[in-house]
């Protein structure tokens, strides 16, 4: 088990190196950072000198090698734009993104699973058809548009929720949280829902089809024949057996939630890492872009690891120490 975890973590280093390599090979195409660092009256000489000082004239592998060497020592460089260490910037923005992603993932699960179970059990109900229609919207509309529509409805027309920002935040050590103030929670609702909607519909559709599948199996019929209560059959036996694919997908989607947060964050001006990244792209802030991409790669690896570990917990067949290989067919 421990060997397994260590092996996966070592793999993550390789993944991050490859992501870094690809990222660096792309940075040549994003523009010249120097134009954003000086004003229009700055002389050509100085622009050239600054390019040289930033090491932008060095060959690609030299730049990449320098980045890796420093990154290994925990130094991700200075942001060109903010003129501050990148790791500090990311540490400041991390709480906002993680809170948003966690709340969005919870929303997706807590609304998506019950909706999936319901539509699976009552396939022809009016409510089921409504859920399915809504889920179609969630799957097909782009996040950007959903965000703008929510802003228009709840921010501009009804004026219930703030249209941008994170509200008031409270510092707990280095972590800043918006979950402890009313304005913080109000500010979180729309972005979290926007981010959650796609995952929510995905989970709902997944649970529904898995439920339909499982409800047809023999052991469910036997369970009913034994006279078990509906509740026990539906949730204790049916739902539990649909959860393995749900966990896989949710886990993988958690990574995409963090990555997709870029769009949601820029629509709602949510001060997280995604917004930092998007601003870094527009200003060609290479150190920030490199650090962000490597970190997202690391997140994906870690999340996949956690998903694999969760399998052991949910599916007894995967546990080597359990001898019997029973369960459903």
């Amino acid at each position: 088990m421990i060997a397994f975890i260590i092996r996966r973590l070592l793999q993550s280093v390789v993944v991050m190196l490859i992501v870094g390599l690809i990222a660096f090979s792309l940075f040549r195409y994003v523009g010249n950072p120097v134009d954003n660092l000086v004003g229009q009256d700055t002389t050509l000489e100085e622009r050239i000198a600054l390019t040289e000082r930033l090491g932008l004239n060095d060959p690609f592998f030299v730049q990449f090698g320098r980045f890796v060497l420093n990154a290994v020592q925990g130094d991700f460089g200075m942001s060109y734009r903010h003129r501050r260490p990148v790791e500090n910037l990311i540490a400041e923005r991390l709480p906002a993104t993680l809170e948003l992603s966690a709340v969005a993932a919870l929303m997706a699960l807590l609304i998506g699973i019950p909706m999936g179970v319901y539509t699976g059990l009552r396939r022809d109900g009016v409510l089921s058809k409504l859920f399915m229609a809504i889920s179609l919207i969630g799957v097909s509309l782009p996040t950007f548009l959903i965000g703008i529509l929510l802003i228009l409805l709840f921010g501009v027309i009804l004026r219930w929720l703030p249209t941008f920002g994170r509200g008031e935040v409270v510092d707990i050590g280095w972590w800043s949280t918006g979950l402890l103030t009313v304005s913080g929670i109000k500010a979180l609702l729309m972005p979290a829902f926007t981010l959650a909607l796609f995952q929510m519909t995905l989970i709902m559709r997944l649970v529904r089809s898995e439920m339909l599948e499982v409800l047809r199996t023999d052991y469910i019929k036997f369970a009913r024949a034994r006279g078990l209560a509906n509740r026990a059959v539906n949730f204790g036996h049916a739902l539990k057996n649909t959860l393995v694919p749900v966990i896989t997908i949710t886990g993988l989607q958690l990574g995409s939630i963090i990555a997709f947060a870029i769009i949601t964050e820029s629509v709602f001006q949510w001060p997280g890492m995604g917004l930092l990244f998007i601003q870094a792209i527009s200003e060609v802030d290479i150190p920030v872009m490199a650090a962000y991409l490597c970190m997202i790669a690391f997140f994906f690896v870690v999340i996949n690891l956690i998903v694999d570990l969760l399998y052991y917990a949910v599916d007894p067949r995967l546990r080597v120490d359990v001898g019997t290989r029973g369960g459903h067919g």
């Binding site: 703008i148 921010g155 941008f164 920002g165 629509v267 001006q269």
Partner: peptide, 18 residues
């Protein structure tokens, strides 16, 4: 002062009175 990068969000924030 708040920087808001998206045009649509900035206009919405103005119209909503924020």
């Amino acid at each position: 002062f708040t920087p808001i990068s998206q045009d649509a969000t900035r206009v919405a924030a103005l119209i909503s009175g924020e």
